[in-house]
Design a protein around this nucleic acid. Structure first.
Lengths: 366, 366
DNA sequence: CTGAAAGCGCTTACAG
DNA sequence: CTGAAAGCGCTTACAG
């Protein structure tokens, strides 16, 4: 019994085989449920594995059978302060990532995450490195040029989010068009608001551009006055949304009757700035968002917005990627339906919010 | 040039070597910046790599040099509906994960994520599988028993979050004690509130238990009436917080002057329920949170809470894990300071919100 | 400086 | 049913 303990992490299938008194092939087979081992063999291996707390090395498995069972997700993050406000506007990324993760679980895949700074010059390099560690990649937003995508896609399958498909890559996005159309109609037709503004997102975002385009077309078609342009340029963040409102107010501009924000985060910021100036939402100015992030319903007033099925977006992205990884299938482009969520910030009455249980306590205005 | 293209993903270092007219050893060396290759050799390799868009296989590298440059993060997720409200109470997990991810970037590590369902019986198995794919593990909350931790820790280094260190694993947590102490004092001493309740989190959470304990001790010491117990049992979620309030009100109970919530999410739900019943915060009832999640400052009224440096918690967890991976160092236990964030939900006037608070919306200068 | 070769820990035909 | 052996794609002493 003078056998020295193996160093941690150095346990291999050979150790298990020795202890069980079988070959490594047998160990591998029972570990993977392959073949039809004799009950005795099976048990000897199982026992040895348990006694040793053996866990097979993922890299060796991956190298051997050509499948890592890992997909990669790459997304952008803010550059500055890492411990403050800046990630707020990126929370939706987490929700999408959850969808990706949940779906990949079902296939026995894990998700490798890698964020890239906004000002990172070596995005392609970073993404390529990820490619080497995974079986396929999901790229958030506009991470790479078409050329960059093509290069990466020559290494592993690639799915982009909120972009458009290329000959080499697939894309999953939401139906911005009909979402914005419904929203604008609700504001201009249902509520009869005569003037509307689009508080935009980042200029380089395909989603933002699509939304802006439909906003203008639809509002114009409905006969509303439109406010757009540099003064209304946000960047998807709450801070950006607040700043636009503050600047406008400071400049003495009159606000439109309704403000359509490029995202919920933008709306949060805008509403915050409005509240600070004593402007009531929706009585004085209606505000709407886009995304339906989790907190949208908890805002004051609850935010009318367009729900993007973000978890589903992530789930779908994985699904498409998976079918490409395992078979070379996979739709090149998937467009998910969105849904107008009418709450109170547009001016609709509370009654549209599900009533609470029949309590004895009446509502008293505070 | 009748050379047929290699199948995608099958490019190896041999292909690069052939094309560059050197050995694979040379390719490996320039790829890794090792040795002092002749300029010509270097260039030939670089060129071949670029022309082929070669990316080395991560598994092979890992197997060869014994380092995957991947750490794993395991956390729990809700079981039911994946596309609705339920993940709200888990958003803080994402913030912590961001901290982990950001820090690991700096060391060239990537993060492998894996969620585990609340009712999953094979948690240990899932975690063990992750261990095989990584160089070390960070475990959120109470994922594993001490025995389970010991088993996993025999495979790779383990850091737990919000738990306590074991002989085999390290732990990183926040200083609940002084946070709760300060908060209760602010409410009872500064605001003179005579009755306070603790709207609790999950019963099996160490954080929750620590907070509950200090709450009672401190409130009692300050001479306030205390409400606790089953009627005040939440579960960290917004829905749970709302339900407690609604039930109490439906039962005709009188609310205390201040409600200390186990988490911000709980506070969100509580405030929502209160607003629905026309009860004003903080005029009628003061409400506080715990965590300082991003949206806390956007609530109405802005939430007084205890800030846990969640990104830093994640960053620290990685740091500790990394020093164990690379050297066998790493503090067994790290306790991070928290900070009382006084906003308006406790009854303080708006003016007390520091305009200098980094990241606050009103701020102009960076 | 550079190449041939061994080895990392698995999986999987191929024999027996 | 089971074992010996080759091979997955790298890295790294070891010679030259």
């Amino acid at each position: 019994m003078a056998e020295p303990k193996k160093a941690k992490g150095n346990l291999t299938i050979y150790d298990v085989a020795t202890r069980a008194g079988v070959s490594i092939a047998s160990v591998s087979r029972v570990l993977n449920g392959l073949g039809t081992p004799r009950a005795e063999t099976r048990e000897k291996v199982i026992r040895a594995v348990r006694e040793l707390s053996f866990v097979p090395d993922g890299s060796a498995r991956a190298l051997s059978n050509g499948l890592k069972e890992v997909i990669g997700v790459v997304f952008r993050r803010g550059d500055e302060t890492l411990f403050e406000d800046e990630y707020e506007s990126f929370l939706y990324i987490d929700v999408i990532n959850r969808g990706i993760e949940a779906e990949s679980q079902r296939r026995g895949f894990d998700v490798l995450m890698s964020s890239v700074a906004f000002n990172d010059e070596n995005v392609l390099q970073r993404v390529a490195a990820m490619a080497g560690k995974t079986d396929g990649l999901i790229l958030h937003d506009r991470m790479l040029s078409a050329v960059g995508i093509a290069r990466v896609a020559s290494i592993v399958p690639v799915v982009t989010l909120a972009g458009s498909p290329t000959p080499e890559s697939m894309n999953v996005r939401c139906d911005n068009e009909s979402g914005m159309r419904e929203l604008v109609r609700h504001l201009v037709v249902d509520h009869h608001y005569g003037s509307v503004a689009y508080l935009s997102g980042r200029g380089d975002s395909p989603d933002n551009r699509a939304r802006a385009r439909i906003f203008e077309a639809e509002a114009a078609a409905a006969g509303a006055d439109i406010q757009v342009g540099p003064a209304w340029q946000g960047n998807y963040s709450a801070a950006g949304g607040a700043k636009v409102i503050t600047s406008l107010l400071d400049a003495g501009k009159a606000l439109p009757r309704a403000i359509v924000c490029a995202s919920d985060q933008t709306a949060i910021g805008a509403m915050h700035a409005l509240a600070q100036r004593g402007i009531r939402v929706p009585q004085d100015v209606a505000v709407t968002g886009f995304d339906d992030v989790p907190v949208a319903r908890h805002l004051h007033p609850p935010l009318t917005t367009v729900r993007q099925p973000m978890q589903e977006l992530g789930a779908k992205a994985f699904e498409v990627l998976y079918s490409r990884i395992s078979a070379a299938g996979g739709e090149p482009e998937i467009v998910l339906p969105v849904q107008l969520i009418v709450r109170e910030s547009c001016g609709c009455p509370r009654s549209s919010v599900p009533a609470t249980s029949p309590g004895s306590l009446g509502r008293e205005e505070g």
